[in-house]
Every structure is written in C-alpha cells, then in structure tokens.
Design a protein around this nucleic acid. Structure first.
Length: 276
DNA sequence: AGCATTACCCGCACGC
DNA sequence: TGCGTGCGGGTAATGC
C-alpha cells in the first residue's frame, strides 16, 4: 500500500501497538515461516532462522518507502510495493492465517508479524547494512533540510516531465502516484510540465504542496482507495486523483486524466497549464 | 561509450 | 466470462 503516508501509518501502528496488539519494539524473534519463497530476497529460510533467532526488535523506521526493522545484530528491510501489508497478529502458527500471508516473524510473546501481499511484488531483505540493500534514493520531501532553492535546482537541472520525475525515487524518495497527483493539483502545475522551466516560486509552491499533502495524508492514516489498503480516510480529501470527469473544486472544469510513464495522472486542464 | 530516460514486466483482485 | 486497470520499481531497451 505504500506511499509515504501509508508506510508511516503502518510503522506508527507497529511502534505504538494497535487493535489490541502490543508494540513490536522489544519483541524477541523465535523463528520465521515463509509461504512464498520469492518474498525473501537475500537468504534461504534455514539461514534466516539461524540469523534472526533470539534477536530483539530495537527500533522501526523508514527510508523512502522501505521499512527498516533494527534488530540486535542486523536489519530486516521490507518493501510493500503495490499490495503489501504488515500486521501484528496473535498465535501465528506454521500455516498462513490469512490468504496472501507470505512471511511471518514469530515472537516469544506469542505474537507475530505477518507480511501479507496479494500481488507478490513485495520483498524482505536481511542485512547488517541496510544501505547496501537500498537503491539510489533522492531526498525525502519531509526532510526539513531540503529547501526551495535546492529543490528548484534539482528540478531545473533535469528537464523531465514533472509527474514521472516526482515519482522517480532516485530524484525524490517516498512520493507515488496519488500524492504526486495531489501535489501538482495543489501547486497548479501540469503533470507534463517540463521541470527545466519551473520558476523558483513554482518550486517553492510545489515543495510546500508535497509536504502539505503528505502530512495531511499521514494525519488521516493514509489513503484507502481500493481493496489494497484499509484504515485510512485521506481518500475523502483527494481533489484530483481518480476524479476524472468531476468538477475541479477551484474552477468547475471537469478533471481530465492522461498516462505518462505508464502511470495515470489526473489534473485540471484550466488550473494546471503547460508553460515554457 | 556512457549516462539519462522510457518501456516492459512481474501475481493478483477487482470492477465494468 | 473477459478484459482493462493498478498506492512500485528492477531491469532491459532506447535515446541523447
């Protein structure tokens, strides 16, 4: 389910405990179960059991859309891709509890961490050095050290369509289709606008829009737009994403959509004009 | 040649 | 029932 707000919501739940489950922090691993072998990208199950057994979860965090579970001696790195989910559940046995459960971490407490993933795109890595697992990633839009001037420089030095550029994780890390669409709408920038001709003022507005949309999404526990992800309600506040044919909230013009880099983009043809 | 950008593709559930 | 679609990104292909 992952864009940054959904990943943040999942992490927050695991850290604080949710739906009667305890926090994941401090849980001691007693073993794993693996129902879809491709899920585990780095080792065979026997090696992983040996590597993880007896270790405790020290912390949970994220880098871009990657979830990092810090253990005593290594890291568990998780990417949920399109349809993955992580949940704490009691009494996870040797058989999967829900359809599409792919991987369990069993804890000494009797609770377990389940990795559920209908589309089988998600992956789990184990490494003492997460940086060696992660691909080249751009700055996080929520990182306060990213300022308008450097964002402007990033945009104008690239000469690419804004929509696919914002979703390029090596350019900016954590933004996907929903929140890039919403941010461009809020900033009144066309999804196909060439980034080379973005003004400083526009860059500042776009960065602020990205932050507003992401923070608002986090505050609403993410977006539950289809069967993939439940629990969030940010879909109630979307203004452009999947609004094709509906009137623009600002000017009443019907929202249109187009496809760029294999991904759909929704925009107001009147508010979001292309320019040099 | 070498870097930057784009297209294909991976399982599956869902809605028209 | 069949078919298009998709909250992602690695890798191959192509472009500059």
């Amino acid at each position: 389910m992952p864009e940054l707000p959904e990943v943040e919501t999942i992490i927050r739940g695991l850290r604080r405990g949710v739906d009667g489950a305890p926090t994941i922090i401090g849980q001691e691993i007693t073993g794993i179960s693996l129902f879809w072998p491709k899920t585990l990208a780095t080792h065979d199950p026997e090696t992983v059991n040996r590597l993880l057994n007896g270790q405790k979860v020290l912390a949970i965090s994220r880098r871009a859309k990657y979830i990092l579970l810090e253990l005593d001696k290594t890291f568990l790195v998780v990417h949920l891709r399109m349809s993955g989910d992580l949940r704490m559940a009691p009494d996870l046995g040797a058989e999967q509890v829900l359809p599409h459960d792919r991987f369990y971490l069993h804890f000494a407490s009797g609770w377990g961490l389940a990795f559920n993933d209908a589309r089988k795109f998600g992956r789990v890595w184990i490494s003492p050095d997460p940086a060696s697992i992660l691909p080249k990633l751009g700055p996080d839009p929520l990182d306060p050290s990213l300022n308008a001037a450097s964002f402007h420089e990033m945009l104008t030095s690239r000469g690419r369509q804004l929509k696919p550029l914002l979703m390029d994780q090596s350019f900016l890390a954590g933004v996907g289709n929903i929140y890039s669409t919403e941010a461009l709408y809020a900033a009144r920038l066309h999804p196909l606008q060439n980034s080379r001709y973005i003004s400083l003022k526009e860059a500042k507005k776009l960065l602020q829009a990205l932050r507003d949309v992401l923070e608002w999404g986090i505050a609403h526990n993410g977006t539950s737009i289809d069967w993939v992800y439940k629990g969030g309600d940010f879909q109630k506040y979307l203004k452009a994403y999947q609004h094709t044919g509906l009137p623009c909230e600002r000017c009443g013009t019907p929202i249109e959509d187009l496809v760029s880099a294999q991904r759909r983009a929704h925009y107001c043809p009147r508010c979001q004009k292309l320019h040099e």
